[in-house]
Every structure is written in C-alpha cells, then in structure tokens.
Write a protein that binds this DNA or RNA. Structure first.
Lengths: 217, 217
DNA sequence: CTGGCGATAGAACAAAGGTTTTATGGCGCA
DNA sequence: TGCGCCATAAAACCTTTGTTCTATCGCCAG
C-alpha cells in the first residue's frame, strides 16, 4: 500500500516549481532556487520536503551531483521534456473525423499521446494527432498504423497536405490541396497516382498535416 | 561573415559529448564531466575550449550557476533536450551507402542533424539518419526528402524494414526483409507492390529502419 | 501534562563545480 | 631567430550547492 495521503500545500508547490523551472531553464533547480521561489526560510526545510517527495516516489535525487533532482512519472521513470500531443482519434476512408477544440477545452478524457519533436509546437502552436487505420491513405504515402500530426485550420494554401472531408462521399482523406477556381484538386503525395477533382463546396479542410510518424519494430 | 573555419577535433568532441550527456542525463555536464569523457588533462583546457565554442556561437554559458552550459542551434536559440541524430548521407537507387562507425570514430565533418523523439535512443541506442533522394523508395512509402532513422546492424529478423545493399545491382534500398532458405525476399512496405527475390549473398544488411520522418510546409 | 511526530528554522560544514593564474610547447611568419 | 598566437597543462582558489546538526513549535494521543 503506497502512502497516498493528502500532500501538504508547500510540498505540492515545490513539486510544481521544479517542473516549471526545468521546463523553462532546461536544468533542474537547486535547493536554494526552490527555497527562494517557494519562500522557504531554510534550505534544510527544502531538503526535508524533497526527502519526503523522494520517499513518496515523486522524484529522484542524484546525491553525488549538483542539480540532481529528477522528476519521475507514475511508473517511476524519469520525465522527458519532449512535448506530447494527443491522438484524438483515427482517420480512415468513410469514417467521420473527430472534432477537437483548439482551445484545449474539456479535453480531460484519457487519450493516447505521442512524443513529438519540440520544434513542431514551437512553429505550429497547438497540435493534435490522428492514427491512420487501413491502407486507404496509401496514395499519400501513409500506411496503416502511421500517426499524422495535424495543425487545426480551415484554410489551406496551395500544395499543402491537408485533412479533407469530402461531404458527398462522407469520407476523410489526406491529400495535397490546390484551389483551381470553382473546384479543388486533391493530389496524392505519390506522384505515380492521379489527382481527384471536386467542387470547392464539397471539400471541407479540417487541418494541415504537419508531420507523419511511423515506427518500425 | 560568421567564423566557420575548421574546428579542432577536440573541440568537436567536446561539443558532441555535451549533446550526448545532456540527452542521456537530462542535465548538462560539468567541466569535469567533459574533462573525463574527452580525456583532457586539465579543467582549464576544457574551460578554454568552452570559451572558444561560446565565442563561435555554439553554446552559451550561464556563469552564475552550476551546469550552466546551454547548447545553441544555428539561430542562437537554446536547443531543446530532444536528442538529435546526424544525417550522415543520402540514400538513392544506385548510390553507395555512406559508411559510419558505430563507435563515433572520426565523425569530424559537418553534418546536418534531425531532432528525434527521446524514446528512440532509449530503446535503440546509437542511431543515425539518411535523407532520401528521389522517389525510388516510393514502394516503401518513403518519399523524396524524407529522412529515415537507422539503427546500424548487419543482421535483421524477418519482417524488419532494413537498409539493404544489393551488390550486383550496386543499389541501396529500403525493404522489409525475409530470409527464405538460400535466398532473401525483399518486400516493399506498400502492399500493392510485388516483392523482390534475390540470393542471400547478394544482399548486405546495413541497418534497420527505426522510424521515418517527413515534414510538410 | 507530556512524549512523539511532522514541520520549520538557522547556521555551519563539506563536496561539487566554475574560474583564474602561471607556465609550457608547437607553429607560422616577419 | 624571435615574436605572437593557439592550444595544452597543473594547481590553486572561490562560489555554488548539497547535507547535517541542533533547536523550536504546534498538535495530538495517551
């Protein structure tokens, strides 16, 4: 039975500060950083609380080095600082595309997540991901099981890879988007395949594809 | 005009070590960590070289704190803690695959790098990357400009996606590998395409594909 | 009331880690 | 040949940072 009582306010504050500090500075705080930020009168108090937190499995301390505080996740593994995006659903021919709130809203459910490289959110802001089911996106060079990272938007420039919803066909697809007057050309990424043409009002852009993740093994 | 002369070996080694250390430990190395790893006789030499690197814009030092080394990217921005792997060359039909030393050896040239998700090196160890030129890998669902991350190895299990060198054809390719007695079946990832069969001794496995990176926009 | 316990305090100590000082060897160049 | 410069070296020095020691305070069960 793990001790999971209520955590004192100060303790919680310390934990939060460590997280924040590490995220902002790329290195863990020192005991004295914590002391200052949490308005604690003595380093020994910080040390005391850190020991408590360590005992409770929230963090790990490497005694032999400076700045040796390591935050742990629920499995006791060191927390990586790489951002994660939620896999909010799947995309497959004939299936509706899940809706998502750009504003983060009540996204409190349990979603799978994928780790992405940090420069993606830096450049694109809020992102989400879809996993691809089936081989219907094979013409876009996207395989069953791949995960596509999406930047939500309703507009797309020519040549951008988009998540398009074809109303008449009731089908979601990933294609390169070209506006040609009253109609739209959807070009598979695979140059050996032919484009699809359809009326502009039949196409609804849901987002741009930012990257594709595929893992082997 | 940016000073981009040749960088001394030792200096490059230091830079690489800092990167490696940070990714493995989540905190930057100390001067003495560097000294040990790079077999340098004195901390002052490390300090000297760090100053050079700082002057050249490769890193930033926060003087007032311990472990204050901050790696910078080309724009002078702090580099995230996500690991990077070197793009050691390109892969294209008919071109030789660059050789690489697993042991880090004389990797002294200037290479491009890509950011990868931290759990990859955790699971696979040392990795490198190749950029794909041309559409000859299209049957493996890999497009021109994609980057494949490779784990160096000479052996492959059935069904693994490998970098294969076909001796007779003098051609590098990415395929799923199946050993079938005296011969080898190389299966494109794209299920709509047919496999290639060839003699086992004509195939040289150079590495396994760990992931594919593709960016849009 | 009182001993135990969680939490806090102040101060000092000790180890880790950054910086400086001084000296030396190789090398190109006037 | 000797000056200047880059790179290396050894050792000390000093700040930052982790740890320990001792004392206090409030609270509560016995």
């Amino acid at each position: 039975m793990v001790t999971r009582k209520k955590m004192p306010d100060r303790r919680r504050r310390i934990l939060e500060f460590i997280q924040e500090f590490y995220f902002e500075n790329g290195i863990p705080p020192t005991v004295r950083d914590i002391q200052l930020a949490c308005e604690i009168s003595s380093t020994s108090v910080v040390d005391y609380n850190l020991k408590q937190l360590e005992g409770a499995g929230y963090l790990n301390r490497r005694r032999e080095v400076a700045r040796g505080i390591e935050l742990l996740d629920r499995d006791g593994e060191p927390v990586s600082s790489a951002p994660r995006v939620q896999i909010v659903g799947s995309i497959a021919a004939g299936e509706p595309i899940p809706v998502f709130s750009t504003e983060g809203g009540a996204a409190s459910e349990e979603f799978d997540t994928v780790e992405i490289s940090p420069d993606l959110p830096r450049r694109h802001g809020k992102l989400y991901a879809l996993s691809v089911k089936g081989t219907s996106m094979i013409d876009a060079l996207i395989d069953d099981g791949d995960v596509v990272v999406i930047k939500p938007t309703n507009e797309a420039g020519d040549g951008e890879m988009v998540v398009a919803w074809l109303k008449d066909e009731a089908e979601a697809t990933l294609k390169k988007f070209y506006r040609e007057g009253e109609r739209v050309r959807l070009q598979p990424a695979n140059s050996t395949m032919s484009p699809i043409y359809c009326a502009a009002e039949n196409v609804e852009v849901r987002g741009k594809v930012v990257t594709v993740l595929r893992k082997y093994g």
